[in-house]
Amino acid sequence: MAVSVPALMKVAELVEDGALRLAERPVPRVPDGWSLIRVRAAGVCGTELHFLEGLLDPMGIPRVLGHEVAGEVTGARTGSSGSRVAVYNVMNCGSCRYCNTNRDRLCAHSLGMIGFTADGGFAEYVVVPERNLVPVPGSVSLEAAAVLACSGMTAVHAVRLAGLGIGDPVVVNGIGGVGLMLVQVAALAGATVLAVADETAKLDLAQNLGARAGLLIDDPEGYETLPEEAIRMMGRAPDVFFETVGTRETMRAGFGCLAPGGSFVQIGYTSQPLDIHPGALIKNELRILTSAAGSRNDLETAIALASQDRLAVVIANRTDLDGLPEAIQSLRDRHVLGRNVIRYESG
């Protein structure tokens, strides 16, 4: 049955000086090989702050942000209207050597990323390549699927990249949306997880979701004692340090607490430089790994785990597009337990 699509849609767009503006735009046309998605949910990621603060370049403004997207296929050349889907946000070619080895994020012929260099899900409709649509089973809500489309797949990708083994002691530093997913996926991989956060409520949540222990550090100076605290709480130095905070103090502490042969995994973006003497790396054969986004397979894995009740999506607050500025401000204030989600009315 044909679905009626309006001529105009409501969007929240990034404009000059890092401001967000509510506006109306024409619903985008659907090129061959693309689909029009009626957005039902869009997660509000910390990456949004990087755009607003100028750390990331959206490659043109005004730009509709929002890279954690799930909804229903409304217009497509393949006749799949009505399907529930999550949007894989990396617009990869699907055939280069990176795409063929499950490293889609490094695609040699990438068209960019939805919600980064192309308009995203802070809109009632978004147009995406058909290859970027991942089916969502009925057991997974579209709100959860939206969050899994970034933080879920990011955690799966980072844990796979780190090559965790059963019983490996690891630290997850920063219990935001990605940190909560990292705790769960690392625990599923068999690791023993120490969660480090700036609020007791975040630690309680992390421990309920699989962290073996939690450590409260609510000021930069507190990270000076992290190496000894990690050893005390875990029995030995950790093999992997997942870094999601990205300050000089946290990154320095991450390297300081690693066991010989350990891996420092930097996730996401930071404006602060990494400061470590090469001799410290060489002496203990430490590895620096960087992890951003993930592959389509990582997203499929995250959705499958959620459908089996093995990966929980914690939604802190739900709002509509009018409430997006408040959702972003709560991220700035670091008081979000899980993920804020923009929800669109069904109809």
Rank of each mutant, 00 (worst) to 15 (best):
residue 2 A to D: 13
residue 10 K to N: 12
residue 10 K to E: 14
residue 13 E to D: 06
residue 27 V to M: 05
residue 30 V to H: 05
residue 30 V to T: 13
residue 36 L to I: 03
residue 44 V to I: 08
residue 47 T to P: 02
residue 53 E to D: 14
residue 57 D to Y: 05
residue 61 I to W: 00
residue 62 P to W: 01
residue 65 L to A: 06
residue 72 E to V: 15
residue 75 G to P: 04
residue 78 T to Y: 07
residue 79 G to Q: 08
residue 79 G to W: 04
residue 81 S to L: 11
residue 81 S to K: 11
residue 84 R to K: 12
residue 85 V to A: 09
residue 92 N to I: 05
residue 93 C to H: 08
residue 97 R to Y: 14
residue 98 Y to S: 10
residue 119 D to H: 11
residue 121 G to V: 06
residue 122 F to W: 14
residue 128 V to S: 06
residue 131 R to A: 12
residue 134 V to Y: 01
residue 143 E to P: 01
residue 144 A to T: 08
residue 151 S to T: 12
residue 153 M to P: 03
residue 160 R to D: 14
residue 161 L to D: 14
residue 162 A to M: 08
residue 173 N to S: 14
residue 178 V to P: 05
residue 180 L to H: 01
residue 181 M to D: 01
residue 181 M to L: 06
residue 181 M to G: 07
residue 191 A to E: 03
residue 206 A to L: 02
residue 210 G to H: 07
residue 219 D to Q: 14
residue 227 P to M: 05
residue 231 I to E: 15
residue 233 M to Q: 09
residue 233 M to L: 15
residue 238 P to R: 10
residue 247 T to G: 03
residue 260 P to R: 11
residue 270 T to Y: 11
residue 276 I to L: 14
residue 283 K to G: 15
residue 286 L to V: 10
residue 288 I to T: 14
residue 302 A to T: 05
residue 302 A to D: 04
residue 311 L to P: 00
residue 313 V to L: 09
residue 315 I to G: 04
residue 319 T to N: 02
residue 329 Q to D: 15
residue 336 V to G: 00
residue 342 I to C: 08
residue 342 I to N: 00
residue 347 G to H: 12
